[in-house]
Nucleic acid binder design. Structure first.
Lengths: 203, 203
DNA sequence: GTGTTGACACCTAGGTGAAAAATT
DNA sequence: AATTTTTCACCTAGGTGTCAACAC
C-alpha cells in the first residue's frame, strides 16, 4: 500500500513492549461519495453501504520492543498492511473497506512491562491476540488494567477507490512510488507540490 | 543457498524456546581438494589453508518457540544462510569458508524455559547473543547450566566450490531449483536419480 | 593451468498504473 | 453510465547458471 502510513512514538522505554494495531474507521458514516470533476472535489452521493466488520491489523513486529523503537528513530511503519473490498477475505494482513467511502486511520498502542504475564504466559497471550482481531475485542481489552492509547491522524483521511478519480493523485504516485517508475516521463517529473484536494488509495 | 539444509527437531514442548544455530566444521582439516575428472571423485590436493574464524549463523526465527515448531511439522529450515569465501565479510547472515575445502554442517539447539532470565532479562540476552557469534563463545556457554545439544549430519558433508566441478551437480540444481528454471530443457528433464559421487555448493 | 570474479540473461515473486473487459 | 475486475507491460528485488575476463 502506497503511500505508507508511518508514525513516531515518543516516550517509550527499553524495558517495555508495545503491541501496536491499525484500523480504519469510517467517517461520515451516512455518506457514499463520488468525485465531481467540475468541482474537483469529493461530494456525498447518497446513503452509505453497511459498514464492514471492524478488523484490526496487528503490526508484523508485535510486540514492538522499546529498544527496537529507539533504534529505528521511534518510527512505526505500516508498509505491510493491505486493503481489500472483499468482505470474504480473512487474511490477517488485510483490512476490509468499502470503495467510495471515507476512512480515517487509527493506531492503537499498548505498553506492557517485559515481565508481565501477558508477555510470559502463553494462555494470556493467545487470549489477548484473539480479542485484538476486532474492534469489539479491543473495547473489552481496553476496559482492563492495560496502559493503552489510541491515536487518530486527521490528515491521513482518505476515500477508498478501485480506480483513480483525480489525475493529480496518479501523477503523485507515479512520481514517488519506486514500483511505478515505468510510468515516469518528463510530463510528470517536475510536478509541483500543489495541495491535493483529496487523498485516494487504490484498493 | 540451494539445496537448503533442513532438519526436524522432535520432543519439543510449547512452554520452551529453542535458540538454534548453524555452523560448518572443516573436515579432513589437513587437506585441500581437487576434483579428478577421470576418477569422478574428489581427491586430496595438498595442504589446507588456515581455517577461517569459526562463526555461527543464528536462525532468523531465534528463539524458535516449541509451539511454532509443532505448527511447522518440527522443521527447522536454513534457507536464509549465505556462504562466502570473503574473510572480511562481517554480515551475520553469512558463513565464511575456504573454496575447495570440505565442510560438515552442524546444528546447535538450546532449550530454554519461557520464564528463564535468559528470555526475560535483556542484559543476559545480549550477553548470550554476543557469545553465540563464534564457536569459542559457544564452548564457553556450553559449559554453563544450559540444556543444549549439537547435531552433526554426516550425509550433508560438501566441498565448497566457486565453479561446479561435476556436471551432474549442475544438472540436479537446474532440475530442482525454481530460480534456475531458465536453464531447463529436455536434456535435463528426465535426469535419473543416480547417485552423485559428491555434493557441491557454489559459494 | 587452475581458480575466481563480474556482467549477463533468465527466472521467481510481487508492487505499479493503463487499458480492456466484465459487471451492475 | 459508473464501477469493478482482469490482463498486461513495466518496474523493484533478488536467486540461478553461463561465459568471458581476470588473477595467481
Amino acid at each position: 500500500m502506497f503511500p505508507v502510513l508511518r508514525c513516531r512514538l515518543f516516550g517509550t522505554l527499553p524495558g517495555f513492549l508495545y503491541p501496536v494495531y491499525l484500523d480504519l474507521v469510517p467517517v461520515e458514516k451516512e455518506h457514499r461519495f463520488r468525485y465531481a470533476y467540475n468541482k474537483s472535489q469529493w461530494q456525498s452521493a447518497g446513503k452509505a453501504e453497511r459498514a464492514q466488520f471492524g478488523r484490526l491489523f496487528p503490526h508484523p513486529d508485535n510486540p514492538i520492543g522499546g529498544d527496537q523503537l529507539a533504534q529505528n528513530g521511534q518510527i512505526i511503519s505500516f508498509d505491510k498492511v493491505k486493503l481489500t473490498n472483499n468482505a470474504e477475505s480473512t487474511s490477517s494482513d488485510q483490512l476490509q473497506l468499502n470503495s467510495m467511502h471515507k476512512y480515517r486511520p487509527r493506531v492503537h498502542v499498548f505498553c506492557i512491562p517485559k515481565g508481565h504475564p501477558l508477555i510470559t504466559k502463553k494462555g494470556q497471550q493467545q487470549l489477548f491476540n484473539k480479542e485484538m482481531r476486532t474492534v469489539e475485542g479491543l473495547k473489552r481489552i481496553a476496559n482492563g488494567p492495560f496502559d493503552y492509547k489510541t491515536f487518530l491522524f486527521e490528515g491521513t483521511t482518505f476515500v477508498a477507490v478501485t480506480a483513480y478519480q483525480n489525475q493529480l493523485v496518479t501523477q503523485k504516485k507515479i512520481e514517488l512510488n519506486p514500483f511505478a517508475k515505468g510510468f515516469r516521463d518528463q510530463k510528470n517529473e517536475d510536478l509541483t507540490d500543489e495541495r491535493l484536494d483529496s487523498l485516494q488509495l487504490s484498493i
